[in-house]
């Protein structure tokens, strides 16, 4: 694909695409720019509400569980695994695009499968994390009574500790800001929906590859476009990760 272009070559004179980008890829780039604003708006909304609160839960305390590990305190271990899986799926996506450039159908199929696996694993992890949070039971002091509640979009058990008050060997807390659940499930859910859409696109691309659609077309650009989307979703996760788990 690397073509020698002389210095001073005029790309914008019409009759050709500036910088040789097909309209499909250009559209994908502009769409991603647009989607950046969607996520940007959501994350900035989250930020404004969060800084307006007196108290916000400590992520090390909220996200400290790991499947099959019981109550062992493992802060951010599971989300690190999720992030690793998603980033690895970006690597396999790169490899799929690379095989596509070489028009190696078998290679494309192999790496697409790995990417689909990575995406699905990530979604499964998210499903587990959500379930764990929603069905969890934390002792919270509500209206003078201790209740065991999980985290949902309308209630938040991760409030400030009530000094000296214990329940079944656990520290009792006050209810935390309800905005926490709303933004957490809202934004990770919206991101998860993007990952899900990406997996659907990848499955479609896999079917198209298998039936030889791209070989007939003579290029694997569709894989590249889906790749752009996939990397974008990955990048968004980095920001979601930063805003919900690290800060």
């Amino acid at each position: 694909m690397s073509t020698h272009v002389p210095a001073g070559y005029k790309w914008w004179t019409g009759g050709k695409s500036p910088y040789n980008v097909s309209y499909g890829k250009l559209m994908m780039w502009i769409f991603l720019l647009s989607d950046t604003f969607t996520f940007g708006a959501l994350l900035i909304s989250y930020g404004t509400i969060r800084v307006s609160q007196n108290y916000w839960p400590d992520p090390n305390h909220v996200f400290n569980a790991f499947p099959l590990m019981g109550h062992t305190n493992l802060p951010l271990a599971f989300v690190s695994l999720m992030t690793f899986i998603l980033i690895m799926s970006s690597v396999t996506m790169v490899l799929a695009v690379h095989e596509g450039h070489k028009r190696n159908r078998a290679g494309v199929e192999k790496w697409l499968l790995w990417t689909i696996l990575g995406g699905s694993l990530f979604l499964s992890c998210q499903a587990w994390e959500w379930t764990h949070m929603i069905t969890g039971s934390h002792a919270v002091l509500i209206d003078g009574q201790i209740k065991e509640i999980g985290a949902t979009i309308t209630q938040n058990p991760y409030g400030a500790a009530v000094p000296g008050l214990m329940h079944d060997g656990h520290q009792v807390t006050t209810p935390g800001p309800v905005g926490f659940g709303g933004f957490f499930f809202g934004i990770t859910g919206f991101h998860g929906f993007h990952v899900f859409s990406g997996v659907c696109l990848l499955v479609l691309a896999l079917v198209w590859t298998r039936i030889g659609k791209f070989d007939n077309l003579g290029h694997y650009e569709m894989i590249e476009k889906i790749g752009l989307y996939w990397h974008f979703v990955d990048l968004v996760w980095v920001f979601v990760f930063l805003c919900f788990y690290l800060i």
């Binding site: 004179t13 019409g14 009759g15 695409s17 500036p18 980008v21 097909s22 309209y23 250009l26």
Partner: peptide, 8 residues
């Protein structure tokens, strides 16, 4: 951006 005719 992409589909201007030659010279445009």
């Amino acid at each position: 951006l992409n589909m201007r005719t030659k010279g445009m």
